[in-house]
Every structure is written in C-alpha cells, then in structure tokens.
Simulated scan of single mutants.
Amino acid sequence: MEAALIVDLPNTSTAAVSKKLVALRSDTGAMALSRVLTLVVVVDEAEAEDAIEVANDASRQHPCRIIVVVGSNRRGAARLDGQIRVGGDAGASEVVVLRLYGRLASHGRAVVTPLLLADSPIVAWWPAEAPKDPSTDPIGEMAQRRITDAARTQGPPKTVLKRLAKSYAPGDTDLAWSRITLWRGLLTAALDQPPFEPVTEALVVAAPDSPSGELLAGWLASRLRCPVSLARSKSGSGIISVRLERKSGTVDLVRPEDGSTSMLRQVGQPDRTLALPHRSDAECLADELRRLDPDEVYEDALTKGFPTLTSARRTASEAVKAGAAPSPAEAERTTQRLRRAARVAGSSAMVEKRPMPEDGADTETVKAAAAAKLAEVKERRS
C-alpha cells in the first residue's frame, strides 16, 4: 500500500492547519471534493492510533474528513500540535490529528469548528470513554449523530446503558448496538416463516460484560412485547444464544463461543447452519455512518425494552440444565454434523458421470479429463 503523506505541525494554530490543508489539496488534486461528512473522534492518547485505523477502514465506504481530538496533558501551557495525513493508510479520507495541551484541552469544540467541512453533516465518535450526556457535550451538541461504545466505557454494562438511556437524545447510537445487527437479521428472518405465532417469552444467554446482550434482549422486549430474561455465560464470551418461545415450540439461535457459524432450530424446519461472524469495529462504525437520521429502533430497545428486562439470576449452564436455553455443546455437534453432510452432498453433486476413456487411451487423455473435473469443482466452489 502506498505510504500516507504525513505533515506534522507542532505548536501550531487551527488557521495554520486549515491553510496547510488547502495547500495539500492544491498539490494533490481535488482530494476533498467527494467528502460526504466530518467525523470527529474524541479519544485519549493511548487509544488514538487504534481509533484512527478503525476510522480509516470505515471511511473507505464513507469518504470523510476525520478530525481526531486527542486529550493530552492538561498541565502546563496551552498548546496545539497538529498532524495531517492523506493517502495510504488514511483510507478514503483526510485525517487531521489535533493534540491539545493545557487549558486548550477543555476547548475541543473551538479548535475543531474552523476545520469542519462546510455544509456537511457532523458525526461525533467516542471510541472509549464517553461523556455522561453525549448530546450536551460541547462536541456532541454540534453533531447530527453521536456514537458511543458501551463495551469500552468504564462501569458495569447495565449501569452504562442506564445512563445512556436516561440521557438519550435523537441521534445517539452505540457500537454495542451495531454489533448485534446480524443477530437481529437472522431472528427477524426466522419469525417471518410459518407458523406465524406470537412469541410468549424469550431468553438471551450472554456474558455479564456484554452490553450487546442487554441491547439484544431490550430489542426483543420492545419488538415482541413479551417477557424477556437473561442468563449469564462466562465473561468475554459475548452473546451465546437466543430462545423464543411460541405455542408450537421454540426458535433457537445458537452461536458456540468463539465460533463464526450459528445453528438455527425451529419447529417444522430442518436444522440449519448460518454465518454469524463477530463484527469488527470498522464494520460497525461504517454501519453507523451510513445513516444520519435518528435510529428509532435503537431508541426503543434502549429506553423502552431494556428497562423491562428480568435480571440475570441464573447462569447459562443452569438455564441449559433446566431446559430453558439451548445447549451450545449440542449446537456445536449439530453444526459439525450438518457441515459434514453438506460436504458429502457437495462432493456427490460434483462427481458426475463422464464418458470414461476407452481401453488403451493415452495418459494425456486421462490427465485432461481429470483437469476438466478439477476446473469444474473450482468453478462451482467459487
């Protein structure tokens, strides 16, 4: 990959940074004409480079100007160190890194404002610790969308989500919500198939340190309007399973720990394996940059569904033993069995009857037949 052009501007001003951006635009061509928004990233020094990498990856789908406000040492004289990155690992964007020192560290909005793209939406993102009320934060106030990450915010997930629910304002969202997009899609698709019966109860098995598990349960409560409870898996395991109870039987969606494939089981349907990979932060951020209007489904999950959840009073193993939750071990065995069956079926379908070489056919003819079969297998697999 082509190396990024990096220009350091130590002990500078926003006017000097803006002037340098204009000069770089003149030197490199119309690099900023396709920018569709300004992404303001508020982060500490320790997380700055990781956040820039994630923002760069997301910007390949949504070209933007990325302004990274790094809160550095608040002691000493006020100073602004700037850095501009274009091309290479800057993705489809131009990255402006602003390191604020001394009293200037408390005036991020004033520093950012002159560098915003004119007449374009503003999105604020806190990759780690977020303000208690994002919509009243000085930078959050000027943004159409405000993205937090409850999984990276200090405190128990339930406490963090309660705070976010209390301070919710249209435009707020969270990467913990984006991480369950695939879960929501698979569950919705399962309920779109017969029998079309109401769900009477639901259980989500997730780790106690997973705000995504809480939000998934909140979404089910707000959408299905039925009692939803949680069971605790071990910390770090994320979301393990969802069980939906209906009159005719259960709908189970299970992703064994550390897996990227899930098993879906429902009455009247054969067991199926479905792709359910863990989503990267860049994928989740790109999703949130895709829409700039308020996310009313997230609002309902956070402010209406989440408060109604029954506390996780039992562990995942206790729920499985009681028959209230599907067994991840059994789901793993079923997934492996279905994979083996699919491979066997695929091999049988690929091995078609072909005219065999007549007795005495030369070796090249046999080789050609084998090569044709191999090419056909590769084509079907692709």
Rank of each mutant, 00 (worst) to 15 (best):
A322P: 05
R339S: 10
E318Q: 14
A342W: 11
E332A: 14
E330P: 00
L338T: 04
T335H: 05
G323V: 08
P326R: 09
A316N: 01
A345G: 15
E332F: 03
P326I: 05
R333F: 05
L338A: 05
A325I: 05
E318R: 12
T315P: 08
E318Y: 01
P328I: 02
A341L: 14
K321D: 11
G346H: 15
V344M: 13
R343F: 13
A331V: 01
A329L: 06
A324K: 09
E318D: 13
R333A: 15
T315C: 04
T334R: 11
T335D: 08
S327K: 02
A329W: 05
A329T: 10
R343N: 12
A342S: 15
S327P: 02
T315N: 06
R337V: 04
R337P: 00
A341G: 08
S317H: 12
G323K: 03
A331P: 01
Q336C: 04
R333N: 11
S327R: 01
A319W: 00
A331Y: 00
T334S: 09
A319G: 06
Q336W: 04
A324V: 03
A345H: 11
V344R: 14
L338S: 06
P326V: 03
G323T: 06
R339T: 10
A345Y: 05
P326G: 03
T335Q: 12
S327C: 10
A341T: 15
G346C: 11
V320R: 08
V344F: 14
A341W: 10
S327E: 04
R337Y: 07
Q336E: 11
T334E: 08
P328C: 01
A345V: 06
A331W: 00
R333H: 09
R340Q: 11
R333M: 13
A316D: 06
L338D: 04
A322Q: 10
A331I: 02
R343W: 14
A345E: 15
A319R: 00
A319E: 03
V344Y: 09
G323R: 07
Q336N: 11
A345K: 14
T334K: 09
A345D: 15
E318T: 10
A322V: 05
R337C: 03
R340P: 02
E332P: 00
A329R: 09
A331Q: 00
V344C: 10
E330Q: 10
A341P: 05
A322K: 07
P328G: 02
K321R: 12
P326F: 02
E318V: 08
A316K: 05
A331C: 02
R337E: 10
V320F: 03
V344H: 14
R333K: 13
A319I: 03
A325S: 09
P328R: 03
T334M: 07
T335F: 04
A345S: 14
A324N: 08
Q336H: 10
S317D: 15
G323C: 06
E330S: 06
R339N: 14
A319S: 07
A342N: 14
A325N: 07
A331E: 06
A322N: 07
R340H: 13
L338I: 08
S317G: 06
R337W: 06
K321V: 07
V320Q: 08
